[in-house]
Design a protein around this nucleic acid. Sequence first.
DNA 1: CGACGCCTTGATAAATGTCAAACGTCGTGG
DNA 2: CCACGACGTTTGACATTTATCAAGGCGTCG
Lengths: 223, 223
Amino acid sequence: MRKSGGRNSGNATRSGALARRMLGVPMKFGEDTEIYGEGEPVEYAYEVEKGAIRTVKVLTDGRRKIGGFYFAGDIFGLEDGTDHDLSAETVGPATVRVIKRQTLIQLAADDRKFAEELLAIAMSDVGRAHRHALMLIMTAHERVKAFFVEMAQRIAIGDLVQLPMSRQDIADHLGLTIETVSRTITALAGTSTLALPSSRLIVLRNRSALMRGAGAEFEAGGH
Amino acid sequence: MRKSGGRNSGNATRSGALARRMLGVPMKFGEDTEIYGEGEPVEYAYEVEKGAIRTVKVLTDGRRKIGGFYFAGDIFGLEDGTDHDLSAETVGPATVRVIKRQTLIQLAADDRKFAEELLAIAMSDVGRAHRHALMLIMTAHERVKAFFVEMAQRIAIGDLVQLPMSRQDIADHLGLTIETVSRTITALAGTSTLALPSSRLIVLRNRSALMRGAGAEFEAGGH
DNA sequence: CGACGCCTTGATAAATGTCAAACGTCGTGG
DNA sequence: CCACGACGTTTGACATTTATCAAGGCGTCG
């Protein structure tokens, strides 16, 4: 379904809770590669070391939903229940630290500080999921703006955002069609809110215009 | 904004992680009463003992979003960060167990089993938020159906669902207008998928028709 | 009995999705 | 080195869904 430029996103290797402790085994994955599938048992937790990951759910009628994107330093795959609710795939080539869920729980039991950190990660995931849900009740323009605000916070280098994901991925994350996303981005470029040297390269020209109406409360809490 | 019949939802007192351990102080609240406000510091965690709670966010332009509903046995208020992202209000008169967040963390540190349970609660919240987000990308009909499927799982007594919340609450939870919700419910009653003896009383007449297309994956995982 | 709030229903407008085609970029092969 | 082809993206015309505006019904409580 994809091929795209093998250009991988420029976000540097940020270290997260696992990397700092040298936990887990780094594994490399190619582009558009499944790391775990929907319905598979939850056995591991993962931390992105390099690249980007998306969690995906495909409905029976073919519609696709992207639960979230994970970048360097982010942890994913932490779910309750026995089976994964969504599958996880690489957006581009990526390196991921893998650790047994059971090991993680064990470590948490032995190390109180780590336990708190783990709980904090789970709770911040709750916050992220809530913000995502909040975003989905807004208009198409607001959703797209909110998406860029989030990307600005998470993967911007200065005013530059190098998008690792396709328009289709963005659309599936925002619950919109690719056409609506494309039109909205064009409109934002028209008002000089942002500029796009290429479709995957976004320059933030006016952050306050971007924030305006884009949830208006995405700065608070900053996760 | 509300007055409604003081009829409180019939769901019995289910006990959750706190009540089972006799933790926290039970407090009574009247209808439509704020338990904590958006922006307030996160100091306590809460468990519903009786009644129903909604978490609310009001956007600057007046739009209202309901993050979720919590019923007997459910825990809410567990957030990371220092401030609440959404406020919490009673839907009808309710009893809520209140416990200091710090106490909870302390307990978790001492009791490994409890720590795991706490982590599981946070993770299941993530799951719920994801399902909510998933629901929000579907059509109005599907969202309403999914809502009733969820209610059927969470507060049904047999085939009877006694809704504690107003149409407006449902609309704000589903990201729809009250009119669209109303029309959709009428349509579902028209196809005998459900019957409504009164606006707050729903009889599930055809669960499979309700599930059909309503996410189709809401049974799996059952939280 | 009357008023108020909630819910439903109807007519119309606006937003977004669908279908279709053209454009640009990039990699491949002549 | 250039031409072609594939794919992702953009743009356009039109259909559909949902929101908005407006009014009426219905039950509940004072």
